[in-house]
């Protein structure tokens, strides 16, 4: 291949990449674009000109104000932070203990415990609605932030443990060998050696868990009764019953509810992909 041909080839490849990638992303995001456009239109425009992918003629930002006020979004969003942040932190902290044990110790029930954690992920969890409510109610912790947080932490342990254990398995054993010989305790190895190494994957997991717990509807429904502590998905559900025919307000409310998880993802996306790395270069 001559130099000219090869540089043309490279240019062609670059062009092909950008065209394909742009088209792909555009098609994939069309539903979201429709959501955003709808949130900015007036109902008259939506009804008179039902071509959803056309940009709004005039931007009606008032829709957002109206959705915010009428649905009481502000308080719901604060509540959701109060639930989500400790739940994510707790799930990661607690599951990292289990993942460490399953990744680095050899003991008879190792696989059995792993299977137990994975098996818990397999049930249709709607089935747990009544038993979980009963248990929370019996302990007197239903209808409180704490009860919901405690449940979220426990419920996410299956996936988090499975995920972190897979990651920790990739950490070369040599990383542990040296400090062990130096007489470091198991807990020191967990806290000082393994956790820092696992940090990227913990960060990635945090992003995933944040979006899941933020977007949870079912468990908030089961475990929260008081309006004062309800989360944003419940607010959105109430609002959808109320504004089902005013598509623009529903869309605006949805966008308000989605801001936090999208922002968290954007803020952490750099760590996200890196942290999910299962590591092809295993030790």
């Amino acid at each position: 291949m001559t130099k000219v041909a090869s540089s043309r080839w490279r240019a062609f490849r670059a062009a092909a990449f950008y065209v394909t990638a742009t088209l792909l992303v555009a098609v994939w995001l069309l539903p979201l674009v429709i959501g955003v456009f709808t949130s900015l239109k007036s109902m008259d425009e939506i009804m008179a000109n039902p071509v959803m992918w056309k940009p709004p003629k005039a931007l009606r930002f008032e829709n957002f104000g109206e959705a915010w006020n009428r649905a009481g979004m502000g308080r719901y969003i604060v509540n959701t932070f109060i639930v989500t942040i400790p739940s994510v932190a707790g799930a990661l902290a607690v599951s990292s203990l289990a993942a460490f044990a399953l990744a680095f110790y050899r003991f008879r029930l190792n696989k059995a415990v792993l299977v137990l954690f994975v098996a818990g992920m397999l049930v249709p969890f709607q089935m747990l609605m009544i038993p979980v409510f009963r248990m929370s109610n019996g302990l007197g912790i239903d209808d409180s932030f704490g009860g919901l947080i405690l449940f979220h932490i426990s419920f996410q342990l299956g996936f988090c443990t499975f995920f972190l254990r897979n990651f920790m398995k990739q950490i070369p054993y040599s990383q542990i060998e040296a400090p062990r010989i130096d007489g470091a305790s198991d807990f020191t190895i967990y806290a000082r050696i393994i956790m820092p190494l696992a940090l990227p994957s913990i960060a990635a997991l945090a992003v995933l868990e944040f979006t899941w717990i933020w977007n949870d509807l079912l468990w908030s429904l089961v475990l929260l009764r008081s309006d004062a502590i309800k989360t944003v998905t419940l607010g959105l559900a109430n609002m959808q019953g109320e504004f089902i025919t005013t598509y623009n307000l529903t869309a605006a409310g949805s966008i308000l509810a989605a801001i936090a998880p999208v922002a968290v993802f954007l803020a952490f996306q750099r760590y996200f992909i890196e942290g999910l790395t299962m590591g092809a270069d295993k030790g």
Binding site: A21, W28, L29, W214, N215, A258, F265, I273
Partner: peptide
């Protein structure tokens, strides 16, 4: 591109 493509995952099923 990656970031944009991933966005659907961050939204709740309700939305």
């Amino acid at each position: 591109y990656k970031t944009l493509f991933y966005l659907p995952m961050t939204l709740s099923f309700t939305i």
